[in-house]
């Protein structure tokens, strides 16, 4: 229940959270600290609507590289500041990069840059037309116990 509140608003004040959950502030403090120590909470991040900041192109770019080039591909993707999130994937692919750029031209240049540095087996770009949900899992008490 505490986590569902933090999923919706990670900056919620402990006093407010205490009222909502009927758990004492001191207990909440300990529990939240334990979530971080135990790496249950991997990060507290402010999710930004990038389009409002002028980043009009968000895309999911899938990459597949030859076995010997996978580590290099990971390093290249990790180094790029426009890769907002990076996932390892299976089923014939190696990585999915969620990228944020001012426009489509820059996304294309990014893919070309990766190709220049790593021998790719395949690549595929999916531009995000609309964000329908973001970090929604376990964000409502109704999800507890699923």
């Amino acid at each position: 229940m505490i986590l569902s509140h933090l999923r919706r608003d990670a900056r919620v004040k402990l006093t407010k959270l205490s009222r909502a959950t009927r758990i004492p502030v001191s207990t909440l403090f300990e529990k939240i600290r334990a979530y971080q120590v135990n790496s249950i909470v991997s990060k507290n991040a402010s999710l930004v609507d990038f389009t409002k900041l002028g980043y009009q192109a968000k895309a999911l770019v899938m990459f597949s590289a030859h076995r010997h080039d996978r580590d290099k591909l990971e390093q290249v993707l990790k180094r790029n500041r426009n890769v907002n999130s990076l996932f390892k994937v299976n089923n014939g692919w190696d990585f999915t990069a969620e990228v944020v750029f001012p426009g489509i031209k820059e996304v294309e240049e990014f893919v070309e840059e990766v190709e220049e540095q790593v021998r790719l087996k395949a690549k595929q770009v999916f531009y995000m037309v609309e964000e329908l949900k973001r970090e929604a899992f376990l964000s409502t008490p109704a999800h507890i116990g699923i």
């Binding site: 790496s39 909470v41 990060k43 507290n44 991040a45 999915t96 376990l138």
Partner: peptide, 24 residues
Amino acid sequence: QGLVRHACLLDFDRLGFPLRVGVF
């Protein structure tokens, strides 16, 4: 401005949800 939402990102595996799937 509706620019931000503060969320804690979870390690779902540690919470008993080990399968994370991307579906097109």
